[in-house]
Design a binder for these strands. Structure first.
Lengths: 141, 141
DNA sequence: ACCAAGATTTAGGTATACCTAAAAATGATC
DNA sequence: GATCATTTTTAGGTATACCTAAATCTTGGT
């Protein structure tokens, strides 16, 4: 499997803090499908970058900077996942793709997609648009 | 800068073949912002994978398999770039983001986006939808 | 046909994230 | 409070894509 990025580590640490109260080495390792020693190593680097506090044998805690990053990532993730689901992508797939896109999107594009999502889900015209798209797809087949 | 993937090499080789008749080491290196020796090394690997024929001191030529991959990538690229532009993302940015997304999208999502793009650009309802979105954005501000 | 200039490859080295196996720390149980 | 099972870290090693410097090939001008 591919090498994991800083962003992926930060996300999973955030998730574990929420779900389990703390982010332990072993749980992180499971979550991102990597062996524990690799996690220890990465946690040291994330600490150097000021994104987490790492306590030996205890685990990781996001710093304010890390939290900010996690919030940002989660926001990007939600934007993509919601948008894809609205367009009819199956839930599991939408999550998987969102997980990829969120790391590679420019601020400008993200903002535009956010707006489009808002348009689709919260305006009458947008909802009409989605209905029309559903109709369109039926005729495709 | 980030490490380059097989897909990025294949794309640029395809582009150079079209634009310049052949894909030379040095030109590839410039294009992906890497030094020539790194390209030589990668070309060997791409040849191993059956994606190109590599002739020492002459350059690379896509095999049918490589061409197929390039076509696929170009298609994905166009889908994303067109979609983003339709939604109002500025041209240069749309290209850059498409370049990222194209490597990370699942077949299912891609197909859905293709359909949505077709809907937006080729059906009256779709064009109406875009007009409504433009209107919506004006009110945002 | 030669030779210099330019391009490419070879040789050797770096950085990064991953791994396994072994050692050390933790903490639950008696 | 000692012991043992579990978790984590340490130590040492692999793979990959990148680099620089030096050697080699190719080619255009004479």
């Amino acid at each position: 499997m591919r090498k994991k990025t800083t962003e992926e580590y930060i996300e999973i640490i955030c998730l574990l803090e929420k779900q389990e109260g703390r982010a332990q080495t072993g749980r992180i390792a499971e979550a991102i499908n990597v062996k524990p020693p690799s996690v220890t190593e990465m946690l040291r680097k994330l600490e150097q970058k000021g994104l987490i506090v790492y306590e030996s044998y205890a685990g990781a805690t996001l710093t304010p900077v890390g939290e900010e990053m996690a919030r940002d990532l989660l926001g990007r993730h939600r934007t993509f996942a919601n948008l894809l689901e609205l367009l009819g992508v199956e839930g599991e797939t939408a999550e998987t793709d969102a997980c990829q896109f969120e790391h590679h999107v420019s601020p400008e594009t993200l903002e535009r997609l956010r707006l489009f999502l808002e348009f689709l889900s919260e305006s009458p015209d947008g909802r009409g648009c989605l209905a029309a798209f559903k109709e369109f797809q039926r005729h495709e087949r």
